[in-house]
Design a protein around this nucleic acid. Structure first.
Lengths: 208, 208
DNA sequence: AGCTACTTTAAACGTGTGTTTGAATTGTTA
DNA sequence: TAACAATTCAAACACACGTTTAAAGTAGCT
């Protein structure tokens, strides 16, 4: 396996677990069993490494996600919000066949990126992958056309928060749930729980 | 004003803005115009300072919040979930008279605490202020008794995520909203938007 | 083999971090 | 005023960080 790949593989797990700021290059190169200087040689800087880690997942996810969301808009009938959010399931879970625990890792990375590093990752994602966002908002608009642009703006950010926050601490939450309720829980189970929640939230009656 | 207070005042703003890991003691003491060593002298360590910052707010908030939630449980009639979440409004906005922008600062701190520092703040809050959590779950149970303990567990964490994530980036979101929709938005406005969302989310039909 | 380009390596650099130290200063009590 | 405790202060400590450097090693090609 190439040094570049070894670094990416080690970095994504550590980043997901301890955040971008909380992970040092020495930890990453130690885990990857490569020399410390390899990161700066292959990626230029830590910031560029972070981008590379995120891009590897986004390039895998975004085409499938856009396809899935756009197909909703092409259908004749009006989709429900459950349909819209369910469109995320297959593309997200596909990351598991792309990489072991890929879904969890990616969602945790997303959570880290939105709170670490003063939102530079938000800028990176919205500018580098704008197609996903427009596909998503169009699907929501078709499912709930009464929602004004401003209300949609807020509700989509609330949804982002729900997903991202839940997933960034999903390991801890799954542990608690397994102990308290004595049954197996995995990331797919969490996704199935969260969909009715966010669908109902976005579909809440309009306040006036 | 005492050195201790000057440190707390400077620290909470910097912590809210840049996170706990992202803020150095030198920034804090510089802003507070006190000597660097004062933090370790008065608080012992940076970790203890973080606890002190959070405690100052929690001690102001938690009695009012518990009172507000418990009064719902004492009423005869069954509260709606809107009632339950609206019970947060007055105690939260009261932080603004306790301190300038207190509501925003506190909610941002809460958001930081849940993602920074690998969840030690989650442990701190749940062990030091368990009354708030039990009052809250009892109120939700009264409003929606059909919800199983497990479903409630997940939905309350989703709600926590919605609130905490939204507020930790509320400054950026409010800026975007003001530009895009050309109208004034403040923290009270965001709270009014988020309540129907989380109420509908928690109140979503049960999946089987 | 010899040349070239790429990659790896150990070591150091400069900077920033939380914390500690011991002397100087201030405040309090007798 | 004298003695004592509490606080402030500048300086240093030990360590971890991201990055850079220059030498050593490796591969492919003529």
């Amino acid at each position: 396996m190439s040094t570049k790949t070894k670094i990416l593989d080690a970095a994504e797990i550590l980043f997901a677990d301890k955040g971008f700021n909380g992970t040092s290059l020495r930890e990453i190169t130690g885990q990857a069993e490569v020399n410390l200087a390899a990161v700066n040689y292959h990626f230029g800087s830590k910031k560029e490494l972070i981008k590379a880690v995120m891009s590897r997942y986004m390039n895998e996810l975004s085409p499938r996600l856009e396809l899935s969301l756009n197909s909703l808009c092409l259908e004749e009938r009006q989709p429900t919000l459950i349909d819209v959010f369910s469109a995320f399931i297959e593309p997200l879970l596909h990351l598991n066949s792309f990489k072991e625990n890929g879904t969890t890792i990616f969602l945790q990375l997303l959570g880290r990126g939105y709170t670490d590093s003063q939102g530079f990752l938000r800028w990176f994602l919205t500018t580098q992958y704008p197609g996903v966002i427009t596909s998503f908002t169009q699907a929501v608009r078709k499912a709930y056309p009464e929602l004004s642009a401003e209300e949609m703006f807020w509700r989509l950010h609330f949804t982002m928060g729900t997903i991202v926050f839940t997933m960034s601490s999903s390991d801890a939450l799954i542990d608690i749930a397994q102990n308290d309720f004595d049954r197996h829980v995995d990331i797919a189970g969490v996704i199935k729980q969260v969909i009715p929640y966010v669908a109902a939230g976005v579909g809440a009656p309009i306040v006036r």
